[in-house]
Structures are given as structure tokens and as C-alpha cells.
Design a protein around this nucleic acid. Structure first.
Lengths: 335, 335
DNA sequence: TTGTACGCGTTATCAC
DNA sequence: GTGATAACGCGTACAA
């Protein structure tokens, strides 16, 4: 239970702690014979350096903090995996925090992380309140900060973003190509960055084509109830006198399970009667029947991009704010 | 970018750093008027203590490490959430690492965590190799260590465990009560703690009842391919000359999506022709049609239990190894 | 009630 | 090549 320190190694090998440090860090020349002596002592005592002490003097902990609204959303899991894998190669360890989507938690956890002297912070899908309040812009003055999605006009921060606009556009164009002329958008009811930008693009597109807009709004977009609500809402609109023949859903849950189940329950055919496209290309879209067409946001790649960017911000001082967009890919399957 | 230290506060408020420290930690009496002076300085300078320095001297970082094989498995997400929520209340921050199920990663990441002086480690679903090799028993001598599941006979460690045996038994008994007499077990092919104990209980039960055992073994139990493989395997066995009328699946993916789809594809009725019970009570079991009966492992509770146990281990010195079992609950839905 | 001085384990600086 | 020693920021005996 008692830790072996550099002192113990120095004593055991009959040299000073300075020399031991040099052997460990290989940053200064050391005589071959003493190097071997020290390395043997390190081995036999099982010494490993206390990273706390090192961090204190080097003013760098080689840690970053990652904040995510949730661990249950596969979108986030993929992004995190992407970040982690790259950062591990850079020699960083990560604090991963989940905020449950609470703005207050974001701030509390970020405080805890900065007190722990993290070298940088990556915030996935920040809450609008904290973005528009200027909180993040202020925070960025004190610590390298990278936001993933959640961008609002006029906010000056470093961002890595999905080009969801392009994804929506591609999906809508595909519907039209396939001869669909009554296109509905299925979204969650809460005000949310990701829903709102999709709706904006949708409205522009529909207006441009001279079509009739039709927005299906369900209450909860991100939990168990989503599926049931989406199914009900889709069945209702399909029974109306001017039902859609195409549905673009804001994520795979509502699209792949909710909308698909609704269409099937009414005995309609997918994709002949109704085409459905989801969003995110999560595993759910691949296992459902029929297999769901969806917009791939390349989440792992998004995470990798974020890792490289934050690393760059932490090491270089070129702190020009950048917004990096990652393109999406429409994946056509059976729906 | 430059940090405010306790020195700065001391200078600004005209007292010594000792006094500042006392005001911050409220651990010694300080005169009211000086306390206010100091608090004002803390406020105006925006001082927050450097936890690194504090940890170094107190020999405790108030951090724990959590290791999980994967972030994409909802079982693990729930457990982690359970742990985190409790530990946050205790004032701990967590390092969350995912090992991708690689034994070598487990060791590498644990080394990184101990070098960072975590106060304790919680390992979810440890790899068998490291458990039986004695690695964890050795590690536990140096740092409070708690394992979640992955228990093998004779291993002396602190554990929190799902009573999966009881869950399997309850499900099998339910099948029998419902008049099912040809019960199959659907499991992943890899050697794995969680599959193996379920199969053991299954074999005992079936033998005890004088029934015919039938084990459906698919290659991959934990990813995209699972569902397709489970569906195929279930369809094959249902077409055989002695098909099962009940299937117990080792998780909700194979059970809720794979097996259900297989049965439906053959035009059979659930539950009249075939009853299906899954495992884990993940969200998938609630959104599938028909809604899946499943064995709830109470994952959040499992995590909370783990948090309380590791906290106890870190604070008290009563380090008797304990194995704590958490009961399961059979949830009957439509399948 | 307050302040001085030491120590936590390491790296950086400067002498030898 | 090597070794004292200062420094990182904080908590705490001990002294006043």
C-alpha cells in the first residue's frame, strides 16, 4: 500500500534522484553502467512515477475532460470512442463526465475538471443556455475548449460540427428523385440545436420546391417514449386526408422503430407507399426490418477530428477559433 | 491563462496562506472579519484550489477509475451511471476507460490510473484471463479494487455480482409453468463468464426436469452481427424436426430482435407457439414488437451498490473480501 | 486567532 | 556525467 518513490530508487541504486529522473525520462545523457544500475532498481522495486507530482511542476496533467449529455445515446458513445482512441496515442487520459443534459451540471463538472488541471476540455452537444450566455466563450480564455455541435450564430468558439444541413438536403433530394412529393419531417418537441437546424433546412427546401410542409412533432425525442410517440404520431398523420409518402426522421429511434412500426401497423408498404430515412446510422438502423435508410454522421471520425483539433489547440498557441465541418453520407438501405 | 494561487489570495487580503487555507477548508477557527476579507479576495480573484497540489499532500485524489469493456452496451452504461451518481455525491470524480474487452488494455489502463493515484478502481466485467491469472488479486494489495461480475471459482477479490443464476432459474421455471417443455438456450459462442454461468444453470435445470437440452450457439453475441445470426439460427432450429417452444436468450439483442424476427419470419405466433425471454431489460426490450419479456438485472442499482462498496473500502480499513449478490427480477411482457 | 516553515514527489536549474 | 537545491501549490505541525 505504500508507494515507492524516486527517493527509494536513488537510495537503492546509490545515485541521486536527479540521475534517476534522467534515466526515467531519457532526457539527459547518463553513463551506461549507472543507467543499468538504476533500471534494475526501478524494476526490482516496481517504481512508477507519481504523475501528480510531475503534473504539478510541469503545469500539464496530460489529461482532458470530455463531457457528454448521456452515455446511452450511441451517437455520443461513438464520438467518445473516436476521441479516446486518438488521445490515448497522444499519451492522454480522459475524464469522461455525463451531464444528463443539465446546464447546471455542465458548469459544475467543468469546474471540477479545471480544478483538476485538465489540459483541455471537449464538450459534446453543449446546452444552448450555456452557449448563448457566453459562458463557453469566457471559459475558453482559461482552458483550451472544443465544442462538438451545438453551434449558434455569433458564438465565437472552437467547433467541430456535423454538416447536418447537407445531410438533410441530400435526403430530401433523394425523396424527390424517387418521385415523393409529400415529405414530412419527424422531430422531437424540445427546442434543440439538432432538431432546429434540420427543420430550418427542411422548411427552405420544401418552400423552394413549392411543396406543402408537414412537421410531425413528438414530445420526447431521446428516450423510451420516443418510439411509441413516433409510432402514434405517424399513424395519425397517415390516416389524415393528405398523408405523406416520405418521412425524414431526426434520429434512428423515431425513424427506424417508431415510424417504421407505424407504417407497418397500417398495412402500408415500405418503401413503395412511404419512404423513411432516419439519422445517425446507429446500430438500430442496421438491425431493424426493413433495414433503415439513414444519414450517416460518421461519428467515430467526428471524434477523431475533435481529438486532433484539441491536441493542436493544447500544443500550439495558434488559437484562432475554427469551425470544422464534417460531411455526412446518405446510406440507402431498404426503407 | 495564468492560475490564481493561494499566495495571490493571501497577498490580496493581507494575511498568510495558512489563514487562507483555513478559510477555504473551514477546518480551524478564523476571526469573522478576516474570514470576510479573505472570502472577498477569493471571489474577486476567482480563486479555486489546485486539486493536484492538495492531492499530493493529502495522499488522496478523490478520484476513482472505472473500466468497462464497451460504451455501446447499455448494460454497462446503466451501471456506470449508477456508480457515478453516487460517487459524485461523495465528492469523487471518475476516470472512465473502455478496454474494448482487451486483457492487455485492462492492464495498461489500470497502470495509467494507479500512476495518477486514483483512490480506487472499479472494473466492470473483467476479462477471464486477468482474473484467473491472479493479476487482480495482486493489484488489490496496492489499491482498493472492486470487480463487477466476472467471478470465477477460487478467486479472492471484492465483488458485486448479478445473481444471473437466479434469473435464469426464474425464467426457466416460468416457461415450465406456462406448459413449455422444449426449452432452448440462445447464447454467444465466445467463452464468457456471463454465457457460461447461464448455460451451467440451464443444463442443471433441464437435466433435473428430464428434458432434452438444446443450446443455440451463435458466433457473435455482442455486435451488429448478433441479430442476424440469432435470427438465422432460430429459424434453422424451428424448422428442425423437434423445434423448441420456448427460447431463453442471453441478452436482449439476440432475444428481442434476433429470435423475435426469426419466429415472425416463419409465421409463428409469439407467445403461443414460441415464448421468448431475453436478458438485461435494456431499452430495446421495451420498444420491440411484441414487447419482450426479460430478466431485469437492475443495472443502476448494481452500480450504486458498487459505488457504496468501493467507498467503504477506500475509507474504512475493513478489507475483508466480500461478494455481494444483487437479485434479478423476471419481467413478463408480451413475448 | 494567526503566521512560519516544512513536506508531498517530481522536474528544472545550475553548479561541479 | 552527476548532484545539490529550488520550485510547483497546497495543508498542517508548531510556535507565537
Amino acid at each position: 500500500m505504500k508507494r515507492v518513490t524516486i527517493q527509494d530508487v536513488a537510495k537503492a541504486s546509490g545515485v541521486s534522484i536527479t540521475t534517476v529522473s534522467r534515466v526515467i525520462n531519457k532526457n539527459y545523457p547518463v553513463k551506461e553502467s549507472t543507467r543499468i544500475k538504476v533500471e534494475e532498481a526501478v524494476q526490482s522495486l516496481g517504481f512508477t512515477p507519481n504523475l501528480l507530482a510531475r503534473s504539478l511542476i510541469q503545469n500539464s496533467t496530460k489529461t482532458i475532460g470530455i463531457l457528454t449529455p448521456s452515455l446511452e445515446n450511441l451517437f455520443f458513445s461513438e464520438v467518445i470512442k473516436g476521441i479516446d482512441n486518438i488521445m490515448k496515442d497522444y499519451g492522454y487520459t480522459t475524464f469522461l463526465c455525463h451531464t444528463e443534459g443539465e446546464p447546471a451540471n455542465e458548469i459544475e463538472m467543468i469546474n471540477s475538471l479545471t480544478n483538476r488541471q485538465v489540459d483541455g476540455i471537449v464538450m459534446i452537444d453543449p446546452r444552448k443556455e450555456n452557449v448563448v450566455s457566453g459562458y463557453f466563450e469566457e471559459l475558453a480564455k482559461n482552458v483550451p475548449l472544443l465544442l462538438i455541435n451545438g453551434h449558434y450564430k455569433g458564438v465565437q468558439c472552437n467547433y467541430v460540427l456535423n454538416d447536418a444541413e447537407a445531410g438533410v438536403l441530400e435526403a430530401l433530394r433523394y425523396f424527390v428523385e424517387q418521385g415523393k412529393d409529400k415529405i414530412a419531417l419527424l422531430r422531437g418537441g424540445k427546442k434543440s440545436y439538432s432538431y432546429d437546424i434540420k427543420e430550418d433546412v427542411y422548411n427552405d427546401f420544401i418552400a423552394g420546391k413549392g411543396l406543402e410542409p408537414s412537421i410531425i412533432r413528438i414530445k420526447d425525442g431521446n428516450d423510451v417514449r420516443t418510439v411509441e410517440q413516433a409510432k402514434e404520431a405517424v399513424m395519425t398523420i397517415l390516416r389524415s386526408k393528405n398523408p405523406p409518402n416520405a418521412i425524414l426522421a431526426c434520429n434512428d429511434w423515431m425513424g427506424g422503430v417508431g415510424a417504421v412500426n407505424g407504417v407497418k401497423a397500417l398495412g402500408l408498404n415500405i418503401p413503395d407507399d412511404v419512404r423513411i430515412i432516419g439519422f445517425d446510422n446507429t446500430i438500430i438502423s442496421q438491425i431493424i426490418e426493413p433495414k433503415l435508410s439513414t444519414v450517416d454522421q460518421q461519428m467515430t471520425k467526428l471524434g477523431q477530428l475533435a481529438a486532433k483539433r484539441i491536441y493542436n489547440m493544447m500544443t500550439n498557441e495558434n488559437s484562432e477559433n475554427q469551425k470544422i465541418y464534417l460531411e455526412t453520407k446518405l446510406i440507402i438501405r431498404e426503407s
